Amino acid sequence: MDLSDDPELQPLLFSLFLSMCLVTVLGNLLIILAFISDSHLHTPMYFFLSSLSMTDTDCTSTTVPKMIVDIQTHSRLISYMSCLTQMSIFIIFGCLDNLLLTAMAYDWFVAICHPLHYTVIMNPRLCSLLILVSFFISLLAYRLHSLMVLELAFFLDMEISHFFCDPSQLLSLACFEIPSSNTLIYFIGAIFGGFPFTGILFSYTHIVSSILRVPSTGGKYKAFSTCSCHLAIMCLFYGTGLGVHLSSTVSSPRDSAVASVIYTVVTPILNSFVYSLRNRDIKRAMWGLLSKTT
C-alpha cells in the first residue's frame, strides 16, 4: 500500500525516502568506520553505538528500498517467500535495535551513577555478552513470529495494508481467524518491547536523579541536554513502535503505515545525527577518517 493515494505526491515521496535512506546508510557507515579506524573510540559506549548503527542500517535497508522501487515502478507486488524474508529480517534487526538501546541506557547508567566502578562493570566480556544475548533474543522473537505466520493459510492474491510485510498485518490476512492471535501479538509486544522500554526508563530515572545532585549548573545543563535528546528519540521509537504493534487491530491501516515510518525511517536518521554530531569524539574521528581518505 502506498502512503498516499495522491499521484502528485509520488515523486515527492520517492525523493524524500530515497534521500532519507541514503543519509541513514551513509551516516551509520561513517560511524562504524570511525569506530574501527580510531582506537580512542574502542570503549563500551562506542562499541554499542557502532552496533546500533549497523542495526539501523540493516533495518532501514530491509523496508525502504522496496518501498522506493514500488513508488517508482507503480508495482506493489511481492512474492510470498520475499514477504516472509522481509518480515524475518525486520523482526530480527528491529528487536535487536530495542535491546541495543536498552544496553546503551544501562551503559549510561553505570557511567553516571557508578563512575568509579565503570571500567570494572562494563568490561569487554560483559559488553560482548550483552550483544550476544540481544542477538539470541532477537532470533527468539523472529522464531515466535515466523511460527505464528507459517501455521496460517493464505489466499493466492492478498492486499497487505502496509508498505512492508508487517507480522500483525499478515496475521490479519489469514484465511481463518485464530482467537488467540491478538493475545499473542500483545504478549510478544509486551515481552520484546515493553520490558526493554521499562529497563530504559529505570536507567534514565536514576541518571536524572544523579544529575540533579551535580553542584555545577553548567554540568547539569550539558548532561540534561544530552540525556533529553537520547530519551526523546527512545520515546519516539518505542511510542510509535509499540503503539502500532498493540493497536494494529483497532487503528486504520494507513494510520499504522504512516506511524511505522517514524520508527523504521525517522529514528535511524535521528540516531546517527544525535549520537554523532553531538559527540565530540565521533566528530573528531570522522574528520580524521575523511582527511585520511582525501
Score class of each variant (00 low, 15 high):
residue 104 M to G: 03
residue 163 F to Q: 00
residue 32 I to S: 05
residue 195 F to H: 09
residue 92 I to Y: 09
residue 258 V to F: 01
residue 244 V to D: 07
residue 201 L to A: 01
residue 258 V to A: 01
residue 48 F to A: 02
residue 26 L to A: 04
residue 26 L to V: 05
residue 275 Y to F: 03
residue 245 H to R: 00
residue 245 H to I: 00
residue 183 T to M: 07
residue 124 P to W: 06
residue 193 G to V: 08
residue 165 C to Y: 02
residue 169 Q to P: 05
residue 165 C to P: 03
residue 203 S to H: 03
residue 151 E to G: 07
residue 73 T to H: 02
residue 59 C to T: 12
residue 211 I to V: 15
residue 24 T to N: 10
residue 236 L to P: 03
residue 37 S to R: 12
residue 253 P to Q: 00
residue 237 F to L: 05
residue 155 F to E: 15
residue 109 F to T: 01
residue 289 L to A: 09
residue 217 T to Q: 13
residue 75 S to E: 14
residue 208 V to R: 02
residue 281 D to K: 09
residue 82 S to L: 02
residue 229 C to E: 11
residue 187 F to Q: 09
residue 159 E to I: 09
residue 266 V to W: 10
residue 164 F to M: 05
residue 82 S to Y: 00
residue 278 R to F: 15
residue 45 M to Y: 14
residue 19 S to A: 14
residue 291 S to L: 12
residue 194 G to A: 04
residue 193 G to R: 07
residue 260 S to Q: 08
residue 183 T to H: 08
residue 243 G to C: 01
residue 42 H to A: 00
residue 235 C to H: 07
residue 277 L to W: 05
residue 113 C to Y: 06
residue 45 M to A: 15
residue 174 A to P: 13
residue 175 C to G: 15
residue 267 T to P: 14
residue 188 I to K: 02
residue 247 S to T: 15
residue 41 L to D: 07
residue 122 M to E: 12
residue 294 T to L: 11
residue 155 F to A: 14
residue 268 P to E: 02
residue 101 L to V: 05
residue 36 I to R: 10
residue 117 H to V: 10
residue 12 L to Y: 08
residue 229 C to I: 10
residue 248 S to V: 12
residue 28 N to Q: 02
residue 278 R to C: 15
residue 116 L to C: 11
